[in-house]
Design a protein around this nucleic acid. Structure first.
Lengths: 245, 245
DNA sequence: GCAAAAGTGTTCATCGTACACCCATGG
DNA sequence: CCATGGGTGTACGATGAACACTTTTGC
């Protein structure tokens, strides 16, 4: 028996930073798992790909149309005793998406579907080995945020730099919020220079105290590495014409 | 049906750099797959973990005792038509190990087992979707070499810096061999300073032309990231005592 | 002695960090 | 006009890249 489970992360910018990083969890109708959260998942059909099954899980269990969302395979969990009802191998998936305009519609054996704060989620609250899955998913999401431009996936079309910083802070480290704003912007100098991050106009909504931030738009692929990790990553040596004798 | 396949990489320092990066491939006895290479793999038993199954595949198909080797899950391949004999989901694994003292012993339905050069391996030479697996495995191995100290896993107890450079060159980019030796050493300054990389004594074997390299020993965990990837990775701000009015 | 390869040290440019200063908004 | 927060510019230190130079081997 092969199943898929989906760990769908989002960030709620309006929430306090410690509760901003959220994950989609559902509670099943089965009495056996009462009071436990789990990730939306389905059994893989005979002629179905994992990717299709994962998007179907989001649709049927939470009413979300994930047809075009960012989705990647996380890993496969197959400990012989992970499911008490027999050996079920689960291919876990990671998805990230903004959740502003979404409404959750529980379905298919699901009582509740909610965005639950990740940082304060105790392992006992999760069914099966989903606490393991969550740990792997959190690490992977943090890595992806570091190596790629996936952070922009969690923001609306136009956004301010403080909002961008909030995304990084919510997922990587809340302390980032206390970082100097100027240096934060400088970290994106290359994106500005290459025209992938472009300013739009002043921010009208000044709901809070200070000066509103400038609005920006991201026009690049969300994947694509941050920069080189090894010093000598780009070796473009033209062969030196060494005399051979 | 759930199977595991293992992509086991090694580096042969004595070979020319383009043929130094090698992968373990086997040829099955089945007439249906004659002339095609595949990765060693087995069906997962009822009460067996993936990890155990992967190590069993190396043992039974190639006679390798991989009990303590570096092994990680790569990803799961489950396209409905990937195996002509029915739907078989395969959990691919990545392993890296030095191969100096190893002898390959074909077994369990395997005719041949060989270390095949990776860079010159055409996709058509591989059975099933193993060409896809290989591509993923190559990318993952290259990433691991960049983010971790896994390169040392492919070297003997003591080694020279040129040999270390050869490992990086074989897997990342052959052009690294033409890089300045001094700057290469400087890239490991942190390892030297922390005492994880320690010199031993002069290299006796001077089989080649120039001066033999100094011998070194690596005494650290093979995993462990290279360095920070985001500028503001380590936020250790003490809260500034701002007057709150 | 000469060529080839390994290893050391210096210089220079780049970039991350700290910090001072200016701008815009709400009360 | 003052507190709060966003944005700009400058100075300094760390470090990667280029390169000159020394050391050690084989022929």
């Amino acid at each position: 028996m092969v199943a898929v489970d989906v760990v769908l992360f989002t960030v709620r910018l309006e929430e306090p930073i410690d509760r901003a990083w959220r994950v989609l969890l559902v509670e099943r109708e089965d009495a056996a798992f009462a009071g436990k959260w789990s990730f939306p998942g389905v059994l893989v059909r005979a002629e179905e790909t994992f990717d299709a099954a994962a998007r179907r899980a989001l649709r049927t269990k939470a009413g979300l149309d994930a047809a075009h969302w960012y989705l990647e395979q996380l890993g496969t969990f197959g400990a012989p005793d992970r499911d008490t009802r027999g050996r079920v191998v689960s291919v876990a998936h990671l998805a990230l998406e903004r959740s502003d305009g979404l409404t959750l519609v529980p379905g298919g054996g699901v009582m509740r579907a909610e965005w639950v704060p990740v940082r304060s989620l105790p392992a006992e609250a999760l069914a099966f080995d989903h606490a393991d899955m969550l740990r792997v998913a959190m690490n992977r999401a943090q890595s992806k945020l570091r190596y790629t431009w996936l952070a922009f996936q969690l923001l609306p079309e136009t956004f301010t730099l403080p909002e961008l910083r909030s995304v990084y802070a919510a997922i990587l480290d809340p302390a980032l919020l206390r970082l100097n704003t100027g240096n934060f912007k400088k970290a994106f100098n290359r994106l500005f220079a290459s025209g992938v991050l472009v300013p739009v106009g002043r921010r009208a909504e000044g709901g809070r105290v200070g000066r509103p931030g400038d609005l920006y738009r991201f026009t690049g692929p969300v994947l694509g590495t941050w920069r080189r990790e090894l010093p000598w990553e780009h070796v473009e040596l033209d062969l030196v014409e060494g005399g051979t004798g």
